[in-house]
Write a protein that binds this DNA or RNA. Sequence first.
DNA 1: TCTTGTTCTGACCGTATGGTCAAGTTGAGT
DNA 2: ACTCAACTTGACCATACGGTCAGAACAAGA
Lengths: 220, 220
Amino acid sequence: MRDDESGKRSKNGRSGSGSRAEARRATEESILKAAETVFAEAGFGGATMQLIADMAGLPKANLHYYFATKEALYRRVVEQIFNIWLQAADVFDAASGPAEGIGAYIDAKMEISRSHPNGSKVWASEVMHGAPVIQDYLETTLRDWTDGRAKIIRRWIAQGQMAEVDPYHLLYMLWATTQHYADFGHQIETLNGGKPLSDAQWEATKASVKGIVLRGIGVA
Amino acid sequence: MRDDESGKRSKNGRSGSGSRAEARRATEESILKAAETVFAEAGFGGATMQLIADMAGLPKANLHYYFATKEALYRRVVEQIFNIWLQAADVFDAASGPAEGIGAYIDAKMEISRSHPNGSKVWASEVMHGAPVIQDYLETTLRDWTDGRAKIIRRWIAQGQMAEVDPYHLLYMLWATTQHYADFGHQIETLNGGKPLSDAQWEATKASVKGIVLRGIGVA
DNA sequence: TCTTGTTCTGACCGTATGGTCAAGTTGAGT
DNA sequence: ACTCAACTTGACCATACGGTCAGAACAAGA
């Protein structure tokens, strides 16, 4: 289930290019990438280990050597996107005020929506189905994270740096809006004439979202 | 949950009102309700006809008598939600300005998120997976609907009734934010101490969302 | 009552899936 | 060269699923 790295890994003494450990890491990575795609496109129930194996380029039995069960593999995929999002919080914390912090957070989340749309979809699917495998994360890490940012937002409000808005509903709006461009990317693409948003359109989108939100919280 | 009242257990004789046609309508309705729940909770791939049949209170073979295939049943569920959302557009059109129109649209969409969370989830899941069964709706009905509202928003902007914002990104933000309370309801509930939003909280949520958005578009 | 079309249902079927296993192959340490 | 753990793989299995079918039960018109 968890990462190995447990018992005796002989020496761990690095020498040339990562031999065994590096190969394992690379294999796991390609599996995770394939799994993310398949889970995003088919959902957990619709995804098959065979398809993931094919996409990763190895036999199904070998896939089970790396990830014992479908659930274990799925869990890793979900944890991956969650950690990516948590990192995006750094820009939030480092900011000196709401315009900078929230603006940078929107930029960061939008970038992730563009670079990791499948991860976002897997997360959305997981939560929509009642978070059967990451409920504990919601109750611990996510709750702590959210409470922490809410506190920052309240401080900004107390200091008169932004309008009085409920911090939680503001955060929900940020999550909803930014992730929408990943989760509903297909719908947006269809309404965009069947073509993905161009670089210019993406920049315009970020500016538009930031414009509305920042003005909405009295910072603009 | 709650056993349907359609029970056609031998007895139940009724003949006066539209006996056969009415019974069929009632049975279909209870099936659709069960299907919406199961598809929302498990996704298309994870849902089973057996579970839907059990929840609707009839044998699987009988379920197949009403809906020949899983796809046919799923399609009906998706179409149902889509039509409910289209109706919510009425308040948009009837408005004389953005504050009234967009405010009322937010209220309407939020109400639907509360009353039909499962339908919203099924739609989200469908779109996330590339809209395999309702792509034609996206390209026709939804596109027309969206273009129409965009035109209205542009007129409001031209008349100086609201700030210059891209109509499409504004609409995406409205969809994302309002549907988030249905699709990610479980996450919100968890962050709310594991309890569903109360009536008062729901009202506060609507006010908060409207506050940010309306201020964000220069109407407030 | 008889007839006819609709509705209901248990039993069944072919297929696909997640997962296992035993027999290999490989390659780093000695 | 030898050893042994790490890795690879085709074949296999039990199960569960979507869907079918033949016939029973039922309603309603004649």
